[in-house]
């Protein structure tokens, strides 16, 4: 999977000279878990992402240790026990917009998007199909998506002592503002 990620990143990088690529280094991903016992929320505002508007190739990479929690203990458990960030330092998505024909990146507006690809968390890769929006506004592209992640699919083990504190399905919100690659 790492090879595929590198290949897609390389593909987008190599073809970037043609001016159809949009990037950000400050994307935002929110992780939200709600149970009757506890609500847990974490934010990462250093998401690296790239979009090729000609092919629809779309990638993002997020460093696990950059997620910030309100409580230090939660952040510690998230890194050390659940996501094992020393062993698996990042999460990635590599995929493609499948309804590229219905999005006009040259015209301001908000477009529904369907994205298909591979999400890698905790070293486990799963094929995903999600819906989101791309809003084109004065030369920038704002991508938004909200989807659920079933944490057991990614072999994240939650100890029995806190099993009621963490939802089986966590909500992930992706919010990125992409700009054309500066030459």
């Amino acid at each position: 999977m790492k090879k595929i990620t590198i290949l897609i990143f390389t593909f987008i990088i190599v073809s970037a000279t043609f001016g159809q690529k949009y990037v950000t280094k400050n994307g935002h991903i929110k992780f939200y878990s709600e149970t009757p016992v506890e609500t847990i929320e974490a934010h990462n505002r250093q998401v690296n992402s790239a979009l090729d508007i000609a092919t629809g190739d779309f990638v993002f990479k997020v460093l696990i240790k950059s997620f910030e929690f309100e409580k230090a203990l939660m952040q510690e458990h998230f890194n050390e026990n659940y996501l094992e960030s020393d062993k698996f330092p990042d999460a990635t998505f590599t995929g493609k917009i499948t309804n590229l024909n219905s999005i006009d990146f040259a015209k301001d507006g908000k477009y529904e998007a369907e994205v298909e690809g591979f999400l890698k968390i905790h070293g486990e890769t799963k094929k995903v199909n999600e819906k989101g929006t791309f809003e084109v506004s004065v030369g920038k592209i704002f991508g938004k998506a909200v989807f659920m992640v079933h944490i057991a699919d990614y072999k994240v083990k939650i100890p029995n002592t806190v099993i009621n504190n963490i939802a089986e399905d966590v909500e992930v919100t992706v919010d990125i503002g992409l700009e054309p690659v500066k030459k």
């Binding site: 990088i13 190599v14 970037a16 000279t17 690529k21 990037v23 280094k25 400050n26 935002h28 505002r45 250093q46 790239a50 690659v181 500066k182 030459k183």
Partner: peptide, 27 residues
């Protein structure tokens, strides 16, 4: 220095890739 969202990021440019500048970003 950049101020995306609620952050203040010190940017050190130490290389250049096809995405543009590369280096170290410090919040």
């Amino acid at each position: 220095v950049e101020t995306p969202d609620s952050l203040t990021v010190a940017v050190f440019i130490l290389g250049e890739g096809m995405f543009g500048d590369e280096g170290i970003r410090c919040t």
